[in-house]
Design a protein around this nucleic acid. Structure first.
Lengths: 147, 147
DNA sequence: TATAAATGTTTTAAGTATGAAATATATTGG
DNA sequence: CCAATATATTTCATACTTAAAACATTTATA
C-alpha cells in the first residue's frame, strides 16, 4: 500500500544521498582539501553574488548560526574567505570569498558537476527528468509544511 | 541538457533529504529523547535480528568503527542496548537491544512510518511509485560503482 | 533619553563523523 | 612454539552540528 511505498522511497532517497555525499566528501578532501560543509558555504557565497552576512548564510544554508561561525573560522584560517566589519551596523560581519577562494570554488564546482553527471550517466535523460519532477513535487510539499 | 538535469535532481534530492532529516531529528528528540544516529543503530540491530558485532554494525551502517563505539556508549548509558563479551573470540563485543530498547524502537519505528506517510500523503501513489523506481535505478548504479 | 526588546555573532555542551593510531586478541607460517 | 600478520574495538585529533546561553550592538518605546 501507499504507506509502504512512501517509506521505501524515503529509505532509498536517504541511502542514495548518503552514498553520493560520502564519495563527494573524499573527492573534495583529496583533490582540494576542503570539506563538504566548507564547499557548501563557498557555494552559498557564490550564489549570493560574493558577499553575505553570517545570519544570511545561516538561513540560506538552513543550519544553525553557531555552525556558520565554525565553518567560516576554518575557511578564513585557510585563506578561502574573509570577514569584514560592516560600518553601518557593527554587529554584522560580511563574509566574502578571497581570490583564492573564488578560484578554488570554480574548480570544485566544475569537478562536482562532472562527477555527478558521470555517476548519473547511466540513467537516461528521461529517467533523470522524471526523477527531478517527482523530487520537485516533494520539495513543494516540504516547503509548504515548513510554513 | 542532461548534465544540468542530473545536477538539479541531485540538489533537490539533497535538500529534500536534509529537510526531512531535520524534522525527524526534532521529532525523535522531543518524543523519545533519542537521536537520529541512535535510532539508526537500533534499526540496524533490529534488522540484524537483535544482536550484532560492532564491526558488523559499522559495515551495515556504512560509518566508521570509531563512530559506532561512541553511539553504542550513549545508548548503553541510557539503557537501550547492552554489550556482551563473546566467549569464543574475546576481541568481539556483541551488541543487543535491551527490552527497553526494543520497546522504544518499536514505538519510534511506528512514529517514523506514520510521520513519513503523513508528509508524503500529498503525493499520489503513482507519483511515489515512479519516484521509488527512479531512486531504485540510481541505487543500483551507485552500488555498482562502489565495487 | 533611558531602557526594554530585537538582532547579529560567538561560545558552550553534547553528540556525530572521519581516518589514523593504539590496544587486545587470534591466526598462521616458519 | 612463536614471531609476523590479521582482525576487533577503542582512543585520538579534527571537524561538523544543534540548541541554548552569552555578548555586542541597534532599534523602538515609555
Amino acid at each position: 500500500m501507499k504507506d509502504e511505498i512512501a517509506l521505501k522511497a524515503w529509505f532509498r532517497m536517504l541511502s542514495n544521498t548518503a552514498l553520493i555525499e560520502q564519495e563527494l566528501r573524499t573527492l573534495f578532501i583529496q583533490k582540494f582539501n576542503v570539506t563538504l560543509p566548507q564547499f557548501d558555504l563557498m557555494a552559498a557565497l557564490h550564489h549570493a553574488g560574493g558577499t553575505e552576512k553570517m545570519s544570511a548564510l545561516s538561513q540560506r544554508m538552513k543550519v544553525s548560526n553557531g555552525n556558520i561561525t565554525g565553518v567560516v573560522d576554518r575557511l578564513e584560517r585557510d585563506g578561502l574567505v574573509e570577514r569584514q566589519a560592516q560600518l553601518e551596523d557593527r554587529r554584522v560581519k560580511l563574509i566574502s570569498l578571497t581570490s583564492l577562494g573564488a578560484e578554488t570554488f570554480a574548480l570544485m564546482a566544475s569537478a562536482h558537476k562532472s562527477w555527478i553527471s558521470e555517476v548519473l550517466a547511466e540513467m537516461s535523460a528521461e529517467d533523470l527528468d522524471v526523477l527531478y519532477q517527482q523530487l520537485f513535487k516533494m520539495s513543494r510539499i516540504l516547503k509548504e509544511r515548513a510554513k
